[in-house]
Amino acid sequence: MIFCRKLEFRYPGESVALSFPEFSVEAGETVALIGPSGCGKTTLLNLISGILVPDEGVIEVGGEQIQSLELAARQSFRLRNIGLVPQNFELLDYLTVRENILLPLRLLDRGRIEKAHENRVEELAEKTGISPLLNKLPSRLSQGERQRAALCRGLVGKPPLILADEPTGNLDTDNQDRIVSLLLEEAGALKSSVIMITHEPSLYGRFDRVENVMSLRMEGGE
């Protein structure tokens, strides 16, 4: 599903480059990415999702070498194949929870919202317990509710790859467990791969594999 080789990336103005010699994830596999703050976990997710483009190396996702795609093609590829669950929710405050969840589908070329999409939203909201909140604005929601809404948005398009950046970072233990259970359950049903950044050791056992980014990367640069 994912194959990264000899990845090298340097932030503008930074002298130190991040290098990932090799990293791969099988289709349907779930991986927990761990490591200290600033070690490059989020950077690796952003490289895999195509938000960042590596200076060197190859990133193959579902057979597509995304580093060689043009910006528009890369965006389009992400929209169709990757479900993102960011740490800070990234919900638009002027859209209702329902509209936020449907947003990735609206951004697609056709952008038409069909009954099946609506049903999918209802189903995800039911599973995450936010059904009564669907017509509310995000500003009226608690942190946990927002995170669940962001998770629903990441899953709504049934993507083959789900990238989650500390989606449980702001949650209490009960909610952490609920979110991860739902994420893995949905991924299992869709046979999607999951890469999730987490700092919560109690969650490690829920994943097929745990990768420490420090062991993945190799310090480079001058």
Binding site: L71, L79, P86, E90, L92, D93, P104, L107
Partner: peptide, 16 residues
């Protein structure tokens, strides 16, 4: 800026 970054992350192009 934050809103547009979210949209970009989701897959919206700069042109959009």
């Amino acid at each position: 800026t934050g809103e547009f970054a979210s949209l970009r992350h989701m897959g919206a192009s700069p042109r959009m």
